[in-house]
Computed example of a mutant assay.
Amino acid sequence: MDKTLKLKIVTPEETYLDDIDVESITILTTAGKITVYSNHAPIVSTLVIGNMKYTINNVTKYIHLHRGILKISHNQVKIITQRLYEVDENGQRL
């Protein structure tokens, strides 16, 4: 069984990440913080302003999102956000 899922992040200006394989994603929704692994139940949710993290090849990366929409289905996570930027684990802009 595959232990990864695809992550796609889109802004009005660009496709920031295009279906990269990740092990997990932790993100802030309006219902609270969730962590997503492969075979997660399908959901659609709105996102709040805050930092998300994802793990790729056992390395954790962080992105600050400015609200958005999250869709999870068929081992794919799609995020549409107004804008984003990379941050470190303390939330400092890179």
Rank of each mutant, 00 (worst) to 15 (best):
I72K: 00
M52N: 08
T4H: 10
V87A: 04
L47Y: 06
N39W: 03
M1T: 15
D21A: 10
N39F: 08
P12I: 01
E23S: 09
S24L: 09
L28Y: 08
D19G: 15
M1W: 10
T60K: 05
H66N: 15
P12E: 05
V10G: 09
T11S: 11
V87T: 14
R93N: 13
R67V: 14
Y54Q: 00
Q82I: 08
G32M: 02
N58S: 05
T15R: 10
L70S: 11
Y62N: 10
D21G: 09
L84C: 14
T26W: 10
D2A: 15
E13C: 06
T26Q: 13
L65K: 01
N58K: 02
V36Y: 00
Y37Q: 00
G68E: 10
L28M: 11
I69N: 03
L17H: 09
K8G: 01
K53C: 14
V59Y: 13
L94A: 15
E14K: 13
E86F: 13
T46R: 08
V10S: 07
L65G: 08
P12N: 04
N75A: 04
I79K: 01
K53T: 13
Y85I: 07
T11Y: 00
S45F: 03
I34T: 09
P12M: 00
N58I: 05
P12V: 06
